[in-house]
Design a protein around this nucleic acid. Structure first.
Lengths: 201, 201
DNA sequence: CGTAAGTGTGACTGACCTGTAACTATCGGG
DNA sequence: CCCGATAGTTACAGGTCAGTCACACTTACG
């Protein structure tokens, strides 16, 4: 409807600004007044586009999830028909997140901060994380892991643990070993899978 | 100064009540008015004992950390001179936490919710988690792990990841496999340690 | 009895919060 | 040139927040 690049719409500015401010101060740590002021707009525009602050939060989360989906799709393109390479790429991507996004996963942080069960953002978060885990398991299966679901669960726990630990124990904490541990888990599972297949075959 | 059991002091009631309410609603989700009302006391008593809400938060965290230290000490008593047994006990303890404390680790949740770097609770949390990790590494070393620090970091990431995942992916998510994965990691590391020692010896 | 420490009470401040209302300004398409 | 949609302005409602104050009460101890 509008050329992007010339001048972003108030709606987009609100979402982008809110995402950044929520990340920095937490959901409850920033008010809508501060958001609209930083976005260079006003409160009425915010409430016309999003019915409530909670809906704005959900929209921000949706944007983050979409961005993560893109990253995942790019990974599949980079390693076509190479699930083992995809697993390695995923590990590298997560390791990169740990180094650059020091504050952890926004979806996890939001889920932990929001204690209301009926919050619209919760469903978005749960859906995304479930799909992420399923995709990971599929890649593990394609890579020939002995127990693909077990490997996916292991990698998932390591990822979440590393990103949480990065915030508390710092860069030199356990998260520094994430890549090494994850790669070892993948190698062991694939080796066992090959051995198992050989036994059968 | 006062017999415990007859009637708890207002101070203790405030800490216990605040801990429970913070857990249920989050730090920013509950006000001091609600805390003192639930504790059967008043705001002035709270502010006479703790200079601010932030200090009360830090005191609650200190209490939780002390409780966790007790659990750890009990573990050492249950498996005297048996570091391998202690590792198994630790895994079982964490697995039990995952099942019973569905909302995750209060220290982690608080650290994620509090975005102010200078918050008095942050130092308490970082200190406790660092000590926990060091203790874990010492037990791994005593148990004869090939790379004790690596094993400790692995177990730590699995623990944090499992407890976070429990909140988002539910009981049937990756956290259901925590015990199995953790025990396998311990077994593999100890086996490699024994093999390495045999090579040397 | 006297005193002192700890505790309870309710009113209060000033700031901040989400959300609404009424009105005005801009701008593109018919 | 007007219409309708989008956006901006100002003001405010109705709450909640942390934190303070003066004052009264209970309890224990000498």
């Amino acid at each position: 409807m509008e050329e992007p690049g010339t001048k972003s719409s108030p709606r987009d500015r609100i979402v982008d600004t809110a995402t950044a401010l929520f990340r920095k101060h937490g959901i409850r740590g920033i008010g809508v007044d501060a958001i609209v002021e930083a976005a260079g707009t006003n409160k009425m525009t915010l409430y016309r586009h999003f019915g409530s602050k909670d809906e704005l939060v959900a929209e921000c989360i949706r944007g983050q999830a979409a961005h993560a989906d893109e990253k995942w799709a790019k990974l599949a393109c980079e390693y076509p028909n190479d699930p083992v390479g995809q697993l390695g790429g995923w590990i590298k991507m997560v390791a990169n997140y740990i180094c650059t996004e020091v504050h952890g996963c926004d979806l996890v942080n939001t889920a932990i901060e929001l204690h209301e069960d009926e919050h619209p953002a919760r469903a978005v978060i749960a859906e995304f994380k479930t799909v992420h885990l399923r995709k990971l398991a599929e890649v593990c299966r394609a890579a020939g892991a002995a127990d693909p679901e077990l490997l996916a669960n292991t990698l998932y726990m390591l990822m979440e643990g590393a990103r949480v630990s990065r915030q508390i124990n710092g860069a030199d904490g356990p998260s520094a070993r994430f890549m090494r541990v994850a790669e070892a888990a993948v190698a062991a599972s694939i080796a066992a899978g090959v051995a198992g297949a050989a036994e059968v075959g």
